[in-house]
Amino acid sequence: MRHTISVLVENKFGVLSRVSGLFSGRGFNIESLSVGETIDRSVSLMTIVTTGDDQIVEQITKQLNKLIDVIKVVDFMDVDHVEREMVLIKVAPRKNDKSEFLKLAEIFRGRIVDSGPATFTVEITGDEKKIAAFIELVRPYGIKEFVRTGKVAIAREGVKKT
C-alpha cells in the first residue's frame, strides 16, 4: 500500500538526514519526499510518500515519532485530505503535432512556462492520477526530461488528525 505521511519536524540542521537515514538504515522505501518551512519558522513540514504493508508502515510512523526532532506524524491513509504534486515536463513535439500538444496541455490545465524552437516546458499540478495520465498522454510527443516536486498533502477542513 502507498501511504502519504506528513512529518512535522524541528527546523534544525541535520533533521532531514535523521529522517532519510532512518528510512535507509531500516530498509524502508521513500518514493518521494518534500520539505518546507511552515508558518512557524521553527518548524518544517515533510511530506513523505512510502510503500509497505501495515506492519511496515506502523514501524515507519513509530520510528519517525521516536526521533527527538520529530514533533508530529500524520499518516494520511485514513484522513480525508488533498494531495498535489507539481511536475515540469519538457516536450519536443514535431511541427505538425505542436497545436495538438498545446491543446492537450490546456485540457490538463498545464501552463507553458518556457518555449523554444524545439521544446515546450509545461508546468502541471495535480494529484497522482492526473499527473500519471498526463505523462502517459504526452509520452508519444517525445518527453525530453521531466522533474517532479514530490507530493504535498493537507487535511480537509474539520478533519481531526490523530
Partner: peptide, 14 residues
C-alpha cells in the same frame, strides 16, 4: 562524528 553516530545514538548534537 554527528553524522557518523546519528544512527547509533538516541540523539546527538553539534
Amino acid at each position: 562524528i554527528v553524522g557518523i553516530t546519528r544512527p547509533c545514538t538516541k540523539h546527538n548534537y553539534l
